[in-house]
Structures are given as structure tokens and as C-alpha cells.
Amino acid sequence: MRRINFRPLVYALLVVYLTIMLLPFLWLLVSSLKTTPEMFSSPFSLPAVLRLSNFVEAWQTGVAKYLLNSLLVTVVSVVAILVVSGLAAYALARSQFPGRNGFYVLLITGYAIPIHTVLVPLYEMLRSAQALNSYIGLIGPYVAFGIPFSVLLLYSFFLDFPKELEEAARLDGCNELQLLARIVAPLSLPGLSSVAIFQGVFIWNEFLLALILISDDALKTLPFGLVSFQGQYAANWPLLLASVTMATLPILLLYVVLQRQFVNSLAGLGK
């Protein structure tokens, strides 16, 4: 029985699919270098001259500000998530105490609750605490909603962690905090970085909470800033696309450099 060789067909389909995946990116990049008239007269050609004025203008009209806000909110939230979830997961994985199982189940169940379902009370609560339009009002919920999944990941990481190391350190006179800071944390870097990437990507791209909790333009994060641009510069496609490019490039570059870590971390959701 002769086999039909499917290989050329498979490659052809793959190339078509990859083209569909890549073209929007390329088109984004090319369009962001054009002028508005160029965009409308010949949307698919290369720009006549290479100019970066759209990028400069987008940067000055707000992208710089939004980028800084996103960076601040993301970094602070991720660090807080690592500390809080790391401590909780370590306690849950390493010691026996009354109520341990109950607390584990409680924290993990939080994963099942989408942010959508608490928007109204969250808004009301932060309004009465006068924390609307503040970094802390945004970071608080980000950290809290990052905890369940991070605890889940770190808990299973700590279970596999060799106990002997900790016991040796204890014998050498390490107290619990020193043990955590000097032995456990450095050796947990793979687990911690996986959590950091997962939560970092989520928070960097989060839009819904920012939309309802922030209204002051000076405090908007990138996704919300882009949506505001979309409203403001509806006719100025090149400027809008330059902003999208600048908002996307940092995380895309980070992804290309740390590809393996990104894929492992984000695909961890499906393990």
C-alpha cells in the first residue's frame, strides 16, 4: 500500500496560516510610518519616505505617560503578588496547622471568580474609600485577583522543594525569615519567574478594571490610554497605529527574548 505524501500540503497550509498571523503585525508597522493621506490613497504600499513623526507625536501626546503608569502598576503589583502568594504558599506547603486545608481551598476558589462579577461593589467600595483614580485603588484588586492562581502554582512548586536544604539551614541557626530570604526564595526562582510572567502579562494588558476605576487621564494605563486615543484620533489612523505599536513592542520584544519562559508560564494554565 502506498502512502500519499501529505508533507507538501501540510507545509503549504502552515505557510498560509503563518501569513495570516503575521500580516496584521507587518501592516501595523508599515501603516504607522505613513501620513493620513497616504494611508487613504494607498493603504497597502510602503510609505514614500521613512518618517517617525507619528511615533514622536504619539509619545508626546500621551503614550510616554501611559507607558510609565503601566510599568509602575505592573511592577508593584507583581512584586506584591510574589511576596504575598509566596508566603502563603510556603506556609500551606510546609507546615501543619489547624485550618490549613480550609484556607487552601478558600484561596484557590478565588480563581473561579472573574473580575467582572465584582465590578459594581469594587467601584462603590473604592469610591467610599476615596481610592478611585489612584494607583493603589488599581493595584489592590490586581494583587488580590493574582493571588489564587499564584498560590496554586507556587504551592505545587514548594511541595517538590527538597526539605533537606531547609533542615540543614535550620541546624545552622537560620530563623524562618532568613531561611525564606536566603535559601527558599533564590532556589524558587523558576517558580517565581513563572508566576511573575503570567501575572505581569495579565496586568500589563488589563483593561476592564482600569476603565471603571480610573478617569483621570494622567493615571491611565496603556490599554485604557489606547482606547482614549481611539476616541480622540479616530481619523488619524497612523498616529493611533504608532501608539499601538509602541504599546505592544515592549512586551513583544520581552516575549521574543524570553520565549521559552513565556510559553511555559502562560501555558501553565492548561497543565
Binding site: L87, L92, L106, V143
Partner: peptide, 17 residues
């Protein structure tokens, strides 16, 4: 060690929910 996680959970998830 559990307290910070539980407090944040209570304030931003359990109570609003």
C-alpha cells in the same frame, strides 16, 4: 504568613462578591 493573602482576598474578592 497566610494573613496578607487572606486579608487581600477578604477585602477585594470575598467582600465585594
Amino acid at each position: 504568613m497566610l494573613a496578607p493573602a487572606l486579608v487581600l482576598f477578604a477585602i477585594f474578592i470575598a467582600y465585594p462578591l
